[in-house]
Amino acid sequence: MTPRILSLSALLLVSACATTPRPAAPVASTPAPALPARGLEGVLGRDARALTALFGDPDQDVREPGARKLQFAGAACVLDAYLYTPANGREAVVKWVDARTPKGDDFDRASCVAALSRRSEAR
C-alpha cells in the first residue's frame, strides 16, 4: 500500500470514530396548570364587603401594605382569601384563594366556597 492510501484509510477510520453531536431535544415549556375558577366566580375579583356578605365576618383579618388576607373557617374547611390593591389605588380585591381542612390538609377551593356559603345561610 502506498503512503497516500494508508493516510486516506487512517483518516476514514478516525472520522468513523468521531461522533456527531445530536441536536438537543426541544424542551417544551409546560405552563403552570390553570386552576379552574368554576365555583370561585363569587369570590375572585370581589372586595372585602362582598366576602363578608357571602361568608359573614372573617375569623381572621390580616392587613399589610397593599395586601390583605381574610380567613373564613367552617367545620369542613378553612378558606384564605388574598386581596391585593391594584396599581390604580382602588379597593383591594381577591386575586387568590386557598383552602384546607381544619387539620391543614388540602381541600378543593370551590367546595370550600360552597360549604362556607351554606354556613352563612344557616345563620
Rank of each mutant, 00 (worst) to 15 (best):
L40H: 04
L44A: 11
K69Q: 15
A53F: 00
D61V: 06
G66S: 05
E41V: 12
K69I: 15
R49I: 14
V62A: 14
P58H: 07
R68T: 00
V43N: 01
D57N: 07
L40Q: 10
A50Y: 05
V62R: 11
R49E: 15
F55E: 07
P65S: 06
G56F: 01
T52F: 10
A37R: 11
A76L: 04
L44I: 13
G66M: 03
A48H: 06
F72K: 02
G66P: 00
G42D: 07
D59R: 03
E64K: 14
R46H: 08
G39R: 00
V62P: 03
E41Y: 07
R49A: 15
L54W: 04
A67P: 01
D59Y: 07
D57F: 14
G66N: 01
G45K: 08
P58W: 10
G66R: 00
P65D: 05
V43S: 01
Q60I: 08
Q71W: 06
L70H: 01
D57H: 14
A37V: 14
A50E: 10
L54T: 09
A37H: 13
Q71P: 03
A75Q: 12
R63M: 12
A53C: 10
T52Q: 15
D61A: 05
G74K: 05
A48Y: 01
A73W: 03
G45L: 01
R63N: 12
R49Q: 15
A53H: 12
F72N: 09
L40S: 11
T52A: 14
A67H: 09
C77D: 04
F55M: 09
E41K: 11
A37D: 15
V62S: 14
V43A: 07
F72P: 00
G56P: 02
L54S: 03
G39Y: 05
G45D: 04
A76H: 05
C77V: 02
G45M: 03
R63D: 12
Q71A: 14
A76D: 10
A73D: 10
D47G: 11
K69N: 14
G45Y: 08
L51S: 02
D47L: 06
V43G: 06
R68H: 07
G45N: 11
L54F: 03
D57M: 11
E41H: 13
P36M: 06
R38D: 15
R49G: 14
F72Y: 08
C77W: 01
E41A: 15
F55D: 01
V43R: 00
F55R: 00
P36Y: 00
R68P: 02
P58S: 12
Q71E: 13
A75N: 06
F55Q: 02
R46L: 02
F55S: 00
P36R: 12
P36C: 09
F55C: 01
G74I: 00
R49S: 15
A73V: 07
E64P: 00
P58D: 03
L70F: 09
D57I: 10
C77Q: 00
A73F: 00
E41W: 04
F55T: 04
D57K: 15
